[in-house]
Design a protein around this nucleic acid. Structure first.
Lengths: 330, 330
DNA sequence: TTGTAGGCGTTATCAC
DNA sequence: GTGATAACGCCTACAA
């Protein structure tokens, strides 16, 4: 009734346990004839190696911890879902699985990861939503828990991380809008001090400067919390300006959606480009900078498990601008 | 350097391994004096029982499998996130964790769950997104893999399930709108044949009938795919009717958001109630029927792990109407 | 090429 | 009340 073990397979194939183990882990060491007999027995009994026993023996769980957060109340649909799927998919290829755990805050996350790690339940951890002054990297490093982070802190990160090139993303948005003959291009972003937000603002500023348009647009830089209401409100402010912009680069789709709301209400003309390419962007026909989350997932898993064992190297991935109707000519 | 084991604790406390084990698993069997000494050693060494060894010994992984799907392309932000968090939280209380895996389709999901189960990596599975004729329950039952399902198939389900009372949800929406003096109340839903959609339509129909309003509204029943565009289009159709409704009950927030778009574009007056209470509902000031996902998570874990071992009992949970500005007087 | 022995960390059983 | 023994299923030496 219980699942078959190596023992059962061995008996069925008329060999010893070890030979079965060899067939699985060092096939070249076993005579083809014997191997086929063993393989037939494995097939017939439906044998699968017990991962728990493997883990105990190898002192390796092949599990990666991930803190699942309650959904961000304002976000239109975070990257969470996509990242989780990408990580699970990438992990599968490396024969690892994700183990979900909860935590009240970043410090609690480190504590819970430590407990799981010491209990042998996870080999390492993947960090999401890295903040400028994030306590988690230092905490995990001190506890010697392998990890990889999606995103960077403000400082130079001396641990494995993967990030998308936020600066390049907003720069691409600006380039695109310039091609479409826009000359006054605003930016809507996070309050200063949020690393991601600052990088996205940088891309906008740098690209405008490159096109010689910064002087005419420098004042069109508005910040606020990441919500639809804020996007709508800031858009009003932009449109009420005496030299209003003809286009806006928003730091998130949520802000961009707010802009679109105002634009429609006021029947204004204002091109918009968002960031993240959330499902909503498609629904609203919103041009948006898409993060290559699948690639991020693979890079994270590689950084965590890869050769050299969790080396402190960073990797920057290029986002891609998805052009839709919202970024038309002025 | 390696984490301490019972052996280490035993040595430190001057007792045998067994006594340490007893302190942890049968404290009453050990003399208080000895217990305190052992507990001190545990504390001092920072000992944590190795879960892998426990699993091997107990033939129980304390892991629950969950298939992570790529995000639904049209959804505004699915229940996925919330459910995952709720399950993780509920699992934690029962000392279980979620293990994420991927699959190409429902059959593949069953196959992968089977592989993990046979490998001893998971004790059971939680099913999400149950369809009318879902092959998973039968498949898992045949493989004797414990599971609990969120949602019901069309037939009477002979397995553990948890569902929210969809019928009661839309009925509550209708009641609310009637209280607000609406008399012609439309329904926007999934195409017939989708179990969830049919139940939500039922609630609308039944409640209207109860209020004696069904005859005047029977024709105001429109169906389509779950997308913003569909919601907007169907709203146009409703408003163009020669006796247009003054209110709409939508089967999802996505459809409801589409309705709101049309309403705003046409400056029409039309009360709207959505379903799911997604983050977007809050942003749009949309009244919506909220699913008690946290309770669902707990009920699922209980159904899966509870006493009696995965008994085929169902549980229906009541949703709650969240009233916001979109359901004002006509 | 194949088999034998031992141990990963835990706990249940059964003596003492 | 405490401790020795054995077993969960696997794998890695080492011996034959």
């Amino acid at each position: 009734m219980h699942p078959p073990t190596v023992e059962d397979v061995a008996r069925a194939a008329g060999v010893s346990r070890q030979t079965v183990s060899n067939v699985l882990n060092a096939p070249q060491r076993v005579r083809p004839e014997t191997r086929q007999r063993v393989e037939a027995a494995i097939e017939q009994l439906g044998y699968r190696p017990n991962r728990v026993a493997q883990s105990l023996r190898a002192a390796t769980s092949r599990m990666i911890g991930y803190r699942i957060e309650p959904m961000h109340p304002h976000a239109l649909g975070s990257m969470h879902d996509r990242l989780l799927h990408a990580l699970a998919e990438a992990g599968r290829a490396a024969d690892h699985h994700l183990l979900l755990f909860t935590a009240d805050d970043p410090l609690d996350e480190v504590a819970n990861a430590d407990a799981l790690h010491r209990a042998g339940a996870i080999d390492g951890v993947v960090l999401y939503g890295i903040q400028s002054a994030d306590p988690r990297p230092a905490g995990l490093r001190q506890l010697r828990i392998p990890f990889a982070a999606f995103g960077r802190t403000g400082a130079d990160d001396a641990h494995p991380w993967v990030d998308i090139d936020n600066t390049a993303g907003t720069a691409a948005a600006v380039d695109h809008l310039v091609t479409r003959e826009h000359r006054r291009i605003a930016f809507l972003g996070y309050p200063e001090g949020v690393a991601v937000g600052d990088r996205r603002a940088d891309g906008w500023r740098t690209a405008l400067d490159k096109h010689g348009l910064l002087d005419g647009s420098r004042h069109l830089d508005l910040r606020g919390e990441d919500s639809l209401a804020t996007g709508a409100r800031l858009a009003e402010a932009l449109l009420d300006h005496h030299t209003p912009p003809t286009a806006v680069v928003a730091a998130t789709d949520t802000l961009a959606a707010g802009v679109l709301r105002t634009v429609r209400q006021r029947h204004a003309r204002l091109a918009v480009v968002g960031f993240d390419d959330t499902p909503t962007a498609g629904a609203l026909d919103l041009s948006s900078v898409r993060q290559p989350i699948e690639a991020v997932g693979h890079a994270m898993i590689r950084a965590l498990l890869g050769p050299g064992g969790n080396e402190p190297a960073g990797q920057l991935l290029a986002p891609e601008l998805i052009v839709r109707a919202s970024s038309a000519l002025p």
